[in-house]
Design a protein around this nucleic acid. Structure first.
Lengths: 203, 203
DNA sequence: GCATGATATATCAGGGTGATAGATTGTCAA
DNA sequence: TTGACAATCTATCACCCTGATATATCATGC
């Protein structure tokens, strides 16, 4: 039962965050949640259909302001109830699949130079990601401090059209920022590991 | 092409580490690699069959010292070549699926108390894992320092039967320890995040 | 002798994956 | 204005991967 329909609940939960389309969900996960979650179309659309079938969400005609028709999904009270139950359950441990670390581990048979090359590659990639995260965090932090939400903030929330009151915005900003902090600290830890390993392997 | 046969190469690489059975592979991954990789039987056995079919590994009758027959797989030169090529390719970024963080994120709609409960749950679990990792790291560190490899070390290497020379043992210990350090630093970062978030949400 | 647990192989339904097709609309420059 | 291009949005597919479980053998201890 552990992994069954985990994405099911994830998508349901994202609808509880705000009503949105399948495309919005994909974007939101890509932009703001990518450091700890992922979803793809092949899963999103069938799941949304399933949610509607089970009465956990309803399909609405989205704001067609000039654009093509959007299917916006809104969570129902029944869906909200089911999601809240799931939220109260203990969660499984994080699942990590780190190909770079696997390569490092399996490079032990070769000379140190090969292992070092892998670590350096790791370092470069994580450095880029770190700067990206820090930039986003700075934008969010500034928005929360000043209480102003410019375009670039709303893009991080993937919410450039729907009106929200200030309190909602501040709350959303806060939780995106807090989870982003998790991503930043994870990346910093990886970079510290790179430093440590390079020292061990070159001494 | 990104994710195709990633496990394929992982298993091939584990055979390059040392010849072993499907059961050994499962154990090795569970014991020593679980913080950054996972494999399961449903994937291991078909993959091993495939490797043999493609001439990348050979199936040998394992040491049946009292036990039931073991199918031990040994990488071929062709397999080694293919694996080394893969090792030299740049790796994809780490994939993380953190259900706890997802729940935290989606609990923003509720009072702080709900979010705090999730973080506390996270903290407890990671604390247990950290102590476990630190225990293993201490054992490995002692073995490398002293050059002695007691039973408990060989269990961490999942190698309690096959004879290896001292140099090989030391090398294996070193790389298990180095990757374990990655796990430790990742868990420490998560715990630091818990601290930070609890402070923010209670102030 | 018998319960229990470790060792070991194998299989399966179905969940999850990336890639991509296809349709529609905004934009911007030539 | 027209055409190229990017962005928006829905949808589907083959295949990989997952967890759970069935089956069998052997060691151990009581």
């Amino acid at each position: 039962m552990s992994n069954i329909k985990k994405s099911h609940f994830a998508i349901l939960g994202l609808l509880s965050w705000q009503p949105q389309s399948g495309y919005d969900i994909k974007k939101l996960v890509e932009v703001g949640l990518s450091h700890f979650w992922n979803e793809n179309y092949g899963n999103i659309y069938p799941t949304l259909d399933g949610l509607v079938r089970d009465g956990l969400a309803v399909k609405e005609a989205g704001n067609t302001s000039g654009r093509r028709t959007r299917n916006v999904y809104r969570i129902t009270q029944q869906g909200q109830q089911l999601f809240d139950d799931w939220l109260a359950q203990p969660a499984d441990l994080p699942i990590v699949r780190n190909e770079l670390l696997l390569k490092f581990f399996l490079s032990g048979r070769l000379p140190n130079k090969a292992s070092l090359r892998i670590v350096q590659n790791y370092q470069v990639h994580q450095q880029v990601i770190l700067e990206d995260y820090r930039r986003s965090a700075a934008i969010l932090g500034r928005a929360i401090e000043t209480g102003t939400y410019p375009q670039e903030v709303m893009m991080l929330l993937n919410n450039d059209t729907r009106p929200l009151n200030t309190k909602q915005k501040a709350r959303q900003c806060k939780f995106v920022l807090l989870t982003l902090r998790h991503g930043i600290m994870a990346v910093e830890a990886r970079l510290a590991w790179c430093q440590e390993v390079m020292q061990v392997l070159t001494e």
